[in-house]
Simulated scan of single mutants.
Amino acid sequence: MGMREDVLVIRRLNDDLRQKGQDGRVLMTQGIQALPQEVIQKVIDAVKAFDDFTPDNDPHGEHDFGSVRIGENAIFWKIDYYDRSMEAGSPDPADPEVTTRVLTIMLADEY
């Protein structure tokens, strides 16, 4: 059974945000911002390069969550879908005209 077309669109849009910083916002929590600059860069690079999606960590196929380890730090990242005003959820995450994507990068213990 093939993946629904809207899921494939959401996946591509999520990958574009995560890998290229396109069409969305990237937020880093205070825990990430408190790390040394060279560690923050390693975190960003690891999030961009992440491709270990499995049915367990990506059950909907949208590439909207992952975890990486940088040294002693367990890092989570997730993508949420908001409406353009950032006041509610997106009515259609597959439509970039009505969606603001937000990639949040956090220490696992901040989740």
Rank of each mutant, 00 (worst) to 15 (best):
M3Q: 14
M3E: 15
M3D: 09
L8E: 14
V9A: 14
V9E: 09
V9P: 00
V9K: 15
R11F: 10
R11N: 12
R12K: 14
R12T: 10
L13E: 04
L13K: 01
N14T: 07
D15I: 13
D16T: 03
R18C: 07
R18W: 06
Q19I: 08
K20F: 13
K20L: 14
K20Q: 14
K20N: 14
G21I: 02
Q22S: 12
Q22K: 14
G24V: 05
R25N: 03
M28Y: 12
M28G: 00
Q30N: 13
G31Q: 09
I32L: 11
A34T: 12
A34W: 05
L35H: 01
P36H: 12
P36T: 13
Q37K: 12
E38L: 08
V39T: 15
I40D: 04
I40K: 13
Q41F: 09
Q41K: 09
V43F: 03
V43Q: 00
A46T: 11
K48T: 04
K48G: 03
D51C: 10
D52Y: 10
F53P: 01
T54C: 02
T54V: 08
D56G: 06
D56Q: 15
D56I: 11
D58L: 10
D58V: 13
P59C: 10
H60R: 13
H60E: 14
H60M: 14
E62D: 13
E62P: 00
E62C: 11
H63Q: 10
H63P: 03
D64R: 07
D64S: 14
D64F: 04
S67P: 00
V68I: 15
G71R: 09
G71N: 11
A74Q: 11
A74E: 02
A74R: 10
F76W: 06
F76N: 11
F76C: 04
I79A: 01
I79Q: 02
D80M: 07
D80G: 06
D83N: 15
D83Y: 03
R84E: 05
S85D: 14
M86D: 10
E87I: 06
A88T: 10
G89Y: 13
G89L: 10
S90P: 08
P91W: 07
P91F: 09
P91N: 05
P91H: 12
D92W: 06
D92M: 08
P93A: 08
D95Q: 05
P96C: 07
V98G: 01
V98K: 09
T100N: 14
T100F: 06
T100D: 11
T100E: 14
R101I: 01
V102D: 03
I105T: 02
I105Y: 02
L107A: 05
D109R: 05
D109S: 08
Y111S: 13
Y111G: 11
